[in-house]
Computed example of a mutant assay.
Amino acid sequence: MADGDKESFYRCFNAVYDDLYRLGIYLYRDQYLVQESINELFLELWKIRAKLTDVHNKQQYIITIYKRILYKTHAKLNTGAHEPVENIEEIPQLSQPSYEELLISAQTNDGIQQKLKRALTQLTARQSELIKMRFYEAMSYKEMAEKTSLTERTIYNTLHNALEVLRKHMYFFFSWV
């Protein structure tokens, strides 16, 4: 992965996603926050991949970065959300989801991932290529245009059409969730 091998990067993502997800849910109990933080973590790891060769304990290094990203994302999402409470009775009771609820949530996420994989097979080769560049490699429209020799407008339109295809194939699943 440190050498820029994308396949190794994807394998790493798949290998540690579930553990990072469980850790994030354990710490914050916020599915959206956890998913956003994992995505942000892997974008960050891709940016600093050359530095990873110097790290001795890569697992601890990744967990440390992940916890920082979780904290920063949580703080960003909750800016101004916590006002001082004057009366102790005003504090809402905190509830923690049961282990069974967390398992159901994780299985739902697995179902979403499987549905998305199936939906991705409905894209044309060009759409699939542009989706990977934009969302997996975090390339800008300008970078994509330079790499593919397409205009930015063509890329935008192709991505728009690809997302419509994905929405169409994902809609049925989300209507049941």
Rank of each mutant, 00 (worst) to 15 (best):
G111M: 06
E143M: 03
A145T: 09
P97C: 00
I48P: 03
M170T: 06
Q35V: 13
T124E: 13
N14K: 13
T154R: 08
L33Y: 02
H160S: 07
A145V: 01
E86I: 11
I38N: 01
L70A: 02
A119P: 07
I62D: 02
F13I: 06
V16K: 15
R134W: 07
Q107Y: 02
A15S: 14
N87R: 14
T124H: 13
A15V: 12
I155T: 05
R118W: 09
F174W: 11
F9W: 11
A145S: 12
T64R: 10
Q31L: 12
L130G: 09
K115H: 05
T154M: 09
F13N: 02
Y10L: 10
H82K: 12
R29K: 12
L130N: 02
D110L: 00
W176Y: 15
D5A: 03
Y136S: 13
R153E: 12
K117V: 08
V85Y: 10
A15D: 15
L70N: 08
H82Q: 12
L27C: 04
T73W: 06
Y141N: 07
I112L: 08
I131R: 04
R126A: 04
L94M: 07
D30F: 11
T64G: 11
K72T: 06
N157S: 10
W176M: 07
K142P: 01
P97F: 07
C12V: 07
Y10D: 13
H169T: 13
R118P: 06
D5M: 04
W46H: 09
T73I: 01
Q35Y: 05
I155Q: 00
V55E: 13
I88A: 05
E100I: 05
P92H: 00
L120A: 06
E44W: 15
L163M: 13
I155M: 04
D110Q: 08
V165L: 05
K147C: 02
Y141C: 10
N78T: 12
D30M: 03
H82M: 14
E7V: 13
I155D: 01
F135S: 03
E101N: 14
E137M: 03
L150S: 04
R49F: 11
E89V: 07
D18G: 01
K72Q: 12
D19T: 09
F42W: 14
E152C: 06
E146A: 10
E143K: 11
I131L: 04
S140I: 02
I155E: 00
S175H: 01
Q60F: 07
Y17K: 08
G24Y: 05
L20F: 05
L52E: 10
W176V: 14
E143Q: 11
Q59A: 15
A119D: 00
R68M: 05
